[in-house]
Simulated scan of single mutants.
Amino acid sequence: MKFIAATLFLAAQITGGFAAAVSSAAAECGSLGVLDINDLPAGVDLSALRKCAGHPLGHTRDLKKTTYNPLTPEEIERAQSAKLDARSVIPVLSGRAANACWFGASSGCTDGYCWKTCGNNGEWCWTAANGGSGNWLQCNSANQCGSGEACGKGCKKSKACGCSC
């Protein structure tokens, strides 16, 4: 009987500790939300997960604070044949923050974070370590960012880190 009581007490302590950890992460992350560990790709290192789901910059890049790698011939052709619409031309012409589709370089660095293109229709994403579930990749210039990096994962409730425009 003492064993059962001790086991129940220990289980209650562990459950309470887990709930406190989740509550603490929710308070720390705020509007970024807590990383959804139910939607992680296979093979991720569980000890290297980030706490917060969303990206600190949301899904907005300030084009005035962005550096790019040199364009490849394929990227130049894609950019020249892109059909600009209101979502893409206004931010480009005004120079203000843009989350519109991107038809330029395949990767870059904005406000200290790496991003890459990830689709054929101008989609882009912030990149993260650990298969997209780790810390957001940081940079000082575009040459520290690559198009082979993983798009951010675990934030399916928002477009803040996934492949989208």
Rank of each mutant, 00 (worst) to 15 (best):
F3I: 14
I4C: 13
A5S: 14
A5G: 08
A5K: 12
L10N: 11
A11R: 07
Q13N: 15
Q13H: 13
Q13T: 11
I14C: 08
T15N: 12
G17D: 07
A20C: 10
S24G: 15
S24N: 15
A25P: 10
A26R: 11
A26H: 10
G30F: 01
L32H: 04
G33N: 01
D36S: 03
D39T: 14
D39K: 08
L40Q: 04
D45G: 01
S47G: 11
L49W: 03
G54I: 01
H55D: 06
P56M: 02
P56Q: 04
L57W: 03
T60S: 14
T60L: 14
T60W: 15
R61N: 14
D62I: 06
D62T: 08
L63E: 13
K64D: 12
T66C: 07
Y68A: 15
Y68E: 14
Y68K: 13
L71A: 11
L71P: 09
L71I: 09
E74V: 12
E75D: 13
E77N: 15
R78I: 06
A79M: 13
Q80I: 12
Q80P: 08
Q80N: 13
K83A: 12
D85F: 08
A86E: 14
A86H: 11
V89A: 13
I90D: 09
V92T: 14
L93N: 01
L93C: 02
S94M: 05
G95W: 03
A98P: 06
A98V: 05
N99S: 13
A100N: 09
C101A: 14
G104P: 02
S107W: 00
S107D: 09
G108K: 02
G108T: 02
T110G: 08
T110Q: 09
T110S: 12
T110L: 07
D111C: 07
G112C: 00
G112D: 00
Y113M: 06
W115S: 05
K116Q: 04
T117E: 05
C118T: 02
G119S: 03
N121Y: 07
N121C: 08
G122F: 01
W124P: 00
C125Y: 02
C125W: 00
A128S: 14
A129Y: 07
A129Q: 10
A129D: 15
N130R: 01
G132I: 00
G132A: 04
N135R: 11
N135K: 13
L137W: 07
C139K: 00
G146I: 04
G146S: 11
S147H: 08
G148F: 08
A150P: 08
A150T: 10
G152V: 09
K153Y: 07
K153C: 07
G154E: 04
C155V: 14
C155L: 12
K156W: 14
C161G: 08
C161H: 04
C161P: 03
C161F: 01
C163H: 03
C163I: 04
C165Q: 02
